[in-house]
Computed example of a mutant assay.
Amino acid sequence: MSQNPETIASQVEETASKSGLPPLDQWHPELSGDMDLRVSRDGQWIYKGEPLAREAIVRLFSTILRREDDGEFYLVTPVEKWRIQVEDAPLLAHSLTVEADGAEQVIKLTTNVGEVIEVGNDHPLEVGSYAGTDEPRPIIHVRHGVTARLVTAAFYDLAEHVVEHEGRAGPELGVFSNGNFYKIG
């Protein structure tokens, strides 16, 4: 067993499905241990104190990362499971684009690993706040408990599409995407 990023990458590369994503929901190995890998709030993946040099490994790791019921993040392969540290959301979302308008609009974001995510049932948008502050924390759910935090510019772009919608308790502010309304604020 190895916690070397190159070794883990080679274990996973052959198992990707047609969608390009490994069948993570089918893998349930025992915990191998803690890996000296940390994802900083600014989205850098840091292994043993140094940023991971190969972008391809970061991209691959983003597809084998899951957050489990204990709130911890794990890199999972068919035979290994390594706990890692994540300071905020493990991914960042930027480059917001909007197609159509009103209730028909579709919001798309690109993550820092190049994945385009469409806000909707499979990838809901949630705007909370950081504990102890009123600072907004806008995230989009990616998969397996992993989220991507909208960078400031993307959040400002999103704010340009906020509309008032009549909710159960009266008017609410938010955005539409794929026929769903997501409250903001």
Score class of each variant (00 low, 15 high):
177 S>L: 02
102 G>I: 00
64 I>M: 00
71 G>Q: 05
109 L>F: 10
168 R>K: 12
7 T>A: 13
32 S>G: 06
3 Q>T: 12
84 I>A: 02
48 K>S: 06
59 R>E: 10
15 T>C: 15
156 Y>A: 09
173 L>T: 04
153 A>K: 14
109 L>T: 01
143 R>V: 08
131 A>E: 14
44 Q>S: 09
88 D>N: 03
168 R>E: 11
137 R>Q: 11
123 H>N: 06
95 S>A: 13
84 I>N: 01
73 F>C: 11
63 T>R: 12
5 P>S: 00
149 R>F: 13
14 E>L: 14
92 L>C: 08
148 A>M: 06
133 T>V: 05
184 I>T: 01
162 V>E: 06
35 M>D: 07
71 G>T: 04
130 Y>A: 13
138 P>R: 09
180 N>C: 01
72 E>Y: 15
13 E>A: 14
169 A>V: 05
147 T>A: 15
182 Y>W: 02
73 F>D: 09
69 D>S: 12
132 G>N: 12
6 E>A: 15
56 A>P: 15
29 P>R: 03
180 N>H: 11
146 V>I: 11
158 L>G: 04
86 V>A: 00
66 R>K: 12
65 L>E: 08
172 E>C: 04
62 S>A: 03
116 V>R: 09
95 S>D: 15
18 K>G: 13
24 L>I: 04
59 R>Y: 13
65 L>C: 12
150 L>N: 08
162 V>F: 01
86 V>S: 00
43 G>N: 04
174 G>N: 03
52 L>W: 15
113 V>P: 04
93 A>H: 07
2 S>T: 10
73 F>R: 07
82 W>E: 08
106 V>R: 10
130 Y>N: 04
158 L>I: 03
141 H>E: 14
93 A>L: 10
104 E>V: 12
